[in-house]
Design a binder for these strands. Structure first.
Length: 470
DNA sequence: TTTTGAGTTGTTCGA
DNA sequence: GTCGAACAACTCAAA
């Protein structure tokens, strides 16, 4: 059989159901279809790097990666006709845009007599198989997690060891440098410094985390100055790494005694799964709050305050450090992610969808399910969300999780010379302390754009307004 | 059908 | 300075 394998957010060879199955059925033509674009994002940089590496891996197996443009169903239909392929295999995705593409493609089954097959997505389990006793999808994490732990997670598939193709070179294939994935934006260099995308690098990052971090994950992950997180999110978002392979690798580390207590980390993987699961069952949540009353939330959406947030010039050091880390490296430490999101929503009363859009542009690990559910969780508009009165105090969070100011000094260097006591709230420091550190408020570093306690009560009022509405 | 227990990540206030 | 309660009920899921 001659099978086109459509690569999507699954840029790897291991545990790739579509590739595995196609390679066992005969000849394979690996294809990637470029997203239709406005302007390249940080995740596109990751994508570019991943495609480059995937191509090299495919070459080693005796194949290549063909890159096309256009709506996937049209591009794949045309390619099928031209190459006389018998089948198109791909791994499913659960976000609504991807599902629309899949449905359009599956329609070719009947139209063009091509065997189109959707294989398992990059999830631990098929999202339709976990249900409550009443047959409904789970809406709260606790019950979902309990149920997930009783399931058997499928064992990952091995990567194919060689591939054969019935065509050598596809003339329509677009060279990667013409893909439009890399623009002239000047952040490439800093992203390159921070990350090495691709399947091979994902294994290395995992090995490092297994040996250095997994055991201390629970105690270290909350402190942004420590290297306590897995740093695997970009690999998972692009599909450089299979979530099932990771799950089993963690279990293996547990059995081998390297990590006796992996539950806190597995729980985080389950949160990713829960996001995918909810997006599958409630596809319109990328656009709409899960809780209806939030349609009436009195957003202010002040454009100047939004800009200050994006640029890391809010006057709150931890928030600013996070936003600058995001811009510079395409990621934010998880704890700080919550703080900046809470600040945008609750202190500035800016619609979470605007924040989500900025994250889409700037995160190398952008993932529509995680991003959507994360923002809805902070906003309080999700099913199982943070209570409305949980308003992070950026100064308290700063003192608690970056006590020595290591993280802040790294990303907000203009405050670096301040003593620890003044670093977390420079607007309260005395003139002498500021002068000694070379800080001029309103000049070298901004005065806070909102007062915390005033913003807090304003947010509480806003939440009171929508209470009980439908 | 009704009851019961639980619910990612916090902050503030007053004793 | 420390500590517990209040913040607000409401929904979910299972018994």
């Amino acid at each position: 059989m001659k099978t086109i394998v459509w690569f999507r957010n699954d840029l790897r060879l291991h545990d790739h159901p579509a590739l595995k199955e196609a390679s066992e059925c005969g000849e394979v033509l690996p294809v990637f279809i470029l997203p239709e674009h406005t302007s390249p994002t940080a995740a596109d940089w990751w994508l570019y790097e991943s495609l480059n590496r995937l191509h090299q891996q495919l070459v080693k197996l005796g194949s290549t990666l063909t890159i096309l443009k256009g709506p996937p169903s049209k591009a794949l239909a045309a390619l099928t006709e031209k190459t006389h392929a018998d089948a198109i295999f791909f791994n499913g995705q659960v976000d609504p845009d991807s599902r629309r593409e899949e449905i359009a493609l599956l329609a070719l089954n009947s139209l063009a007599k091509v065997n189109v097959r959707r294989c398992a997505p990059n999830m631990l389990l098929d999202p339709s198989c976990l249900k409550t006793g009443a047959g409904e999808p789970y809406k709260v994490f606790g019950a979902f997690w309990k149920s997930l732990q009783q399931q058997t997670i499928p064992w990952p598939l091995a990567a194919p060891t060689s591939l054969t193709s019935w065509i050598d070179d596809c003339p329509e294939s677009i060279p990667l440098e013409h893909s439009g994935l890399r623009a002239s934006i000047d952040w490439d260099a800093s992203l390159e410094e921070a990350w090495t995308p691709g399947e091979t690098a994902s294994f290395e990052q995992w090995a490092q985390f297994r040996d250095m971090g997994l055991n201390r994950y629970d105690t270290k992950r909350d402190f942004p100055a420590l290297n306590g997180t897995s740093r695997l999110s970009g690999f998972l978002a692009s599909g450089n790494m299979s979530i099932r392979a990771l799950w089993h690798a963690v279990r293996r580390a547990q059995e081998e005694g390297i990590a006796p207590q992996p539950e806190p980390f597995l729980r985080q993987l389950a949160w990713r799964e829960f996001s995918y699961y909810q997006l599958f069952h409630f596809p319109d949540i990328t656009k709409r709050p899960l809780r209806q009353e939030f349609l009436h939330f009195p957003w202010l959406n002040d454009p100047d305050e939004l800009t200050a947030w994006k640029k890391g010039k809010t006057g709150y050091p931890l928030v600013d450090a996070g936003m600058r880390e995001l811009w510079e490296t395409g990621t934010i430490h998880n704890r700080v992610r919550m703080v900046v999101a809470s600040f945008l929503i609750k202190h500035l009363l800016i619609d979470w969808r605007i924040g989500a859009e900025w994250f889409r542009e700037t995160l190398v690990d952008y993932d529509v399910a995680n991003n959507t559910l994360g923002w809805q969780w902070v906003a309080g508009s999700g099913f199982d969300a943070a209570p409305y009165f949980r308003i992070f105090n950026p100064t308290t969070q700063s003192r608690k999780f970056d006590e020595k100011g290591t993280y802040i000094r790294k990303w907000v260097p203009e405050l670096a010379a301040l003593p620890d006591a003044a670093l977390h709230e420079p607007y309260r420091a005395s003139e002498d302390v500021l002068t000694d550190a070379g800080v001029v408020l309103g000049d070298t570093y901004p005065v806070p754009i909102v007062d915390h306690s005033a913003a807090r009560s304003r947010a509480l009022d806003a939440y009171a307004q929508i209470k009980g509405k439908k």
